[in-house]
């Protein structure tokens, strides 16, 4: 840890600026998530066919989750390689599980 107060000050300022920048993206992300949610609810409330609505709202949900993971949970930053591997492995197992339970359980 750098104990040199002088350089620390500049560093602090730099990081503060950086965090502010990041925060701006977070707010934009949030606005988009709210927009997606409104679109999804609107599609369901509106007079659209089921075959159109279901895939679209699933894609919207997927994008929202990526927003959460990459922006809110900072997976876009460095040092998140292992978390990414584990989350995607989890999603892989999750998809297989849901696929099996919705297709081959005698429904």
């Amino acid at each position: 840890m750098a104990k040199d107060t002088n350089s620390n000050q500049y560093q602090d300022q730099f990081y503060k600026q950086k965090h502010k920048e990041e925060m701006k993206y977070q707010v934009i992300t949030f606005a988009m998530m709210i927009a997606f949610t409104i679109i999804a609810f609107g599609l369901v409330a509106g007079p659209f066919s089921k075959l159109f609505v279901v895939p679209v709202i699933l894609v919207l949900a997927g994008v929202q989750v990526l927003f959460q993971l990459y922006y809110f949970m900072h997976m876009n930053q460095k040092g998140h390689e292992m978390p990414a591997i584990m989350i995607y492995s989890g999603i892989f197992a999750a998809v297989l599980t849901i696929l099996a339970l919705t297709t081959i359980t005698w429904i």
Binding site: T97, A100, L101, I104
Partner: peptide, 9 residues
Amino acid sequence: IIWEHIFWI
């Protein structure tokens, strides 16, 4: 069958 799937998963 749900049990069988979940158990073997």
